[in-house]
Design a protein around this nucleic acid. Structure first.
Lengths: 301, 301
DNA sequence: TATTATGATAATCTTTTACTTATGCTTCAT
DNA sequence: ATGAAGCATAAGTAAAAGATTATCATAATA
């Protein structure tokens, strides 16, 4: 094994550049013998003379030229590493791995795009998965931050709310209840609901809500995306409970209406989550703060 | 300036590979705290955490991945340097810079070719220059070895003879003296000689020789190569004095003849030279020995 | 809940590193 | 031939590097 130190290479580089021990010593603010010793040790480590002295001039040997070449490469690698790491300390560079729950797909991309726009040179990876998978990723440390509506408890997860997430009842504009006001909650017991699959955060929240109010929920089809629920509701196959954010377009274009049911909307929040105890990178920390401080205004607008 | 040591990188590499401090400690035959400390110091030097611990598993941070990448590159450079240098210690690799005097161009390439053939992986650079330039290169250490017929004295040059270099008088086959035998040296005083330029080794040797024998040399044209002299002599423009080696072909094909002059041939040698005190590389040393031991037989054959 | 595995921390010791100054030797230039 | 320049060598020193063992904290596991 080649035994040498970076210090030796550094001193060697200076000597090779000046072709003078004394000049190198000056440059490095060392005594001349200190330089001689470093070179001597390097030569011992390498096992070959690196300089030859003829008269009062010194020259690089062939071996010296090789060491110079490799030493330069190494120096370059170090310099490059230094700048990259320096950039990572600031916000100039970094990688951010984010997973969001299916529903968040309606607004998360906007936020990420905006954040990346502000901080160039940040590489981003976005995964859209369902709640269960996200929890799995979270416990396995496969991501930096997650966005979800219903953080699991007791799994050592830090969750911070950053935006409202009202759940509303949607119906086709042709639905009998479409124009009514102050619909009593109990009235919904007669209706059929198109719901998300088990394990979905929206589904859980919805079930809990109805249970709390002593209502039996009659579920029709199960859909694995909010998009599918919207289509089914549009087609008049029943009512739906979805996040307000997912139906902005449909409301505007009158494809769907929000029913004015008592106790609705269900008040929930979006949370940014990460495994507790995880040391967030500079970038991750910045993104989290970005969400907490600005996301609410940005998405509304 | 990024402050880190190769030791730190080495330990880091092991930890990153095992994703375990304890495993790395085993591999490196160290105690676990020793590993912890190296990593800690590296992290301090870098200014960023390289690992994060979640539960009892550790993960590389983004910064850690970068350090791993650059560290690997550096390790690779070191390994490559090691093999190259190891090869240079043997004869498996090396570079040889040779300069030869113009006349030696008639036999030096054969020798070099043979040497390279025997020792693959040796890079060779051959310069053909005149005597003055060669001496200049020699004093400036611009080459490893030189081949010349008349080593300068008093310039701190080591010269070792390795092959005979007889100088003969050549003439056109039609020359009046062509068929004569035992031509007295004095007879040459009536002839015109085509000579090499001043500073040429052959020219110097020739002048010295005539002077020693009390003869005035009448010179005609000056030529800067032996080839040109041969052409002029062939054309009947005068006599020439050249190294025997340069006219082998012309003698065989009767384009030229060697005159049988008393005291001729001038007995000289080819010398392999280098600046005295120069540390010859393994390759240069080998080539020098090759010349001294084998060149004579090889070129004759 | 007790055990075990893993890493962090503390105290300590030895060795090596990275220098220094003083001095000597060689070569070049005056 | 004498001085100056340049590198090597020797002796000495303060700091650090690189370990060790012992102990502690934490989290997964049985």
């Amino acid at each position: 094994m080649l035994h040498l130190t970076l210090r030796q290479l550094q001193v060697f580089e200076s000597v090779a550049r000046h072709l003078s021990f004394s000049r190198a010593a000056e440059e490095l603010h060392l005594s001349q013998p200190a330089v001689s010793m470093q070179i001597k040790q390097l030569e011992e480590g390498v096992g070959l003379p690196l300089f030859e002295q003829l008269g009062k001039k010194i020259f690089l040997t062939e071996a010296g030229r090789e060491v110079f070449r490799y030493g330069s490469n190494i120096g370059q690698q170090l310099a490059e590493a230094e700048t990259v790491l320096a950039e990572m300390k600031g916000l100039q560079r970094g990688k951010l791995v984010i997973s969001v729950v299916t529903t968040a797909n309606y607004f998360a991309p906007q936020l990420l795009a905006l954040f990346c726009q502000r901080n160039q040179n940040i590489t981003l990876s976005l995964n859209v998965v369902n709640r269960e998978v996200l929890i799995h990723q979270l416990t396995n440390n496969e991501m930096d931050l997650g966005i979800m509506g219903l953080p699991p408890e007791g799994l050592g997860i830090d969750a911070e709310p950053f935006m409202e997430n009202p759940l509303v009842v949607i119906a086709s504009p042709n639905h009998p209840l479409a124009l009514e006001q102050n619909i009593p909650l109990s009235r919904l017991a007669q209706e059929t609901f198109i719901v998300r699959e088990m394990g979905s955060g929206t589904r859980s929240a919805m079930e809990r809500f109805f249970a709390q109010h002593g209502l039996a929920l009659s579920t029709g089809m199960e859909m694995s995306t909010d998009e599918a629920i919207k289509q089914a509701v549009k087609a008049g196959m029943g009512l739906g409970v979805v996040s307000m954010l997912t139906v902005a377009l449909e409301l505007e274009t009158k494809r769907l209406v929000v029913l004015d049911v008592d106790s609705f909307p269900i008040r929930r929040h979006w949370f940014v989550v990460h495994r507790s105890g995880k040391r967030l990178s500079v970038v991750a920390q910045a993104f989290k703060e970005f969400l907490v401080n600005e996301a609410a205004q940005l998405v509304v607008a």
